[in-house]
Design a protein around this nucleic acid. Structure first.
Length: 294
DNA sequence: TTCCAGGAATCAA
DNA sequence: TTGATTCATGGA
């Protein structure tokens, strides 16, 4: 069969792909040579940055690219987003430390499933679990080389798996959560597409009906898949960031902290959160070192 | 060896 | 309501 690769080039401004794709919001990207390879919307794609452009190469013919430009949010004016961040020292430091960090717009099911796997796991382990799940249960897709790639498995497919099969993908206690969630979706109990029409609060409540989904994971899905930029996930890193950068003197009570995250960071609070997350996780030695939780 | 990881469910007080 | 415990697994 003839090589049917297709490529397209898009302008890229204020967008650091390596930072974005490695910032713990998506888990299927691999650095390969100069570029990044992954599967988006069931298509294998290789992204290569050249100057102020990104070249996208697919293995199969492609004439319409909204599946990729929407995923990468190439239309978003990052400077306009950052302009809404609070003008304080921690936020300025986080923005300065992570130039070109962006949010993606992922598919809700893959994002939900990935973050159900994420609880009490390191990012590299989440990546490994997602790779194992995809390899074991996902449909094969044509890639750019001899290696076989796989789409992220559908909830229908996972709903028909056994807990033992999921545990074989190193999910541990999260296996029954993923199985339960896939089962609810396969049974039509909740329609992920319908959440787009709901308020953020109602969409969050719907997501939290799934087993293994609490406030934090629901907020990740709202932010990374549904474009709800007011959603502010608080994980162990963001908690450390808030304590260390904003409340160094005394420990804020949880409800005080929640009110702070909902009011201080503006309409794009979730975007600001991603900057704080990546900043403390990669650039603040006092917090990167293994220090006791206070 | 011990601690911890983009947490949530469960149970005790 | 809040606080402690449990749940797998592997990296540091």
């Amino acid at each position: 069969m003839e090589n049917a690769e297709t490529s397209a080039v898009f302008p890229l401004q204020d967008h650091d792909l390596a930072t974005t794709l490695g910032s713990g919001q998506a888990f299927r990207w691999r650095a390969v040579g100069e570029g990044w390879e992954g599967v988006v919307a069931g298509r294998w794609v290789r992204l290569t940055v050249r100057d102020a452009t990104v070249e996208a190469r697919t293995a199969l013919p492609c004439t319409e690219w909204s599946w990729l430009t929407g995923y990468l949010r190439l239309e978003e004016d990052l400077s306009a987003v950052i302009a809404t961040f609070p003008d304080d020292a921690p936020m300025r430091a986080a923005v300065a430390a992570c130039p070109g960090l962006r949010l993606l717009r992922q598919e809700p099911w893959e994002c939900l499933a990935s973050f159900i796997l994420s609880s009490t796991k390191q990012i590299v382990q989440i990546q490994q679990c997602v790779a194992l799940l995809s390899h074991r249960f996902g449909d094969p897709v044509a890639g750019g080389g001899p290696e076989t790639w796989h789409a992220f498995p559908s909830f229908v497919r996972l709903a028909s798996a056994t807990e033992a099969e999921l545990r074989a993908c190193k999910l541990g206690f999260r296996a029954k959560y993923l199985l339960g969630t896939a089962g609810m979706l396969a049974a039509g109990e909740i329609d992920l597409d319908a959440l787009h029409a709901l308020s953020t609060d109602d969409a969050r409540a719907a997501l939290m009906r799934f087993p293994g989904v609490g406030r934090k994971i629901a907020d990740c899905v709202l932010l990374f898949a549904y474009g709800r930029q007011d959603a502010f996930p608080v994980d162990v890193w963001v908690l450390k960031a808030l304590r260390f950068l904003y409340f160094p003197k005394r420990e804020p009570k949880p409800d005080r902290l929640r009110r702070f995250t909902e009011t201080h960071f503006g309409p794009n609070a979730g975007y600001a959160q991603q900057y704080l997350f990546h900043y403390v996780r990669t650039k603040v030695p006092e917090l990167r070192s293994r220090t006791k939780k206070r």
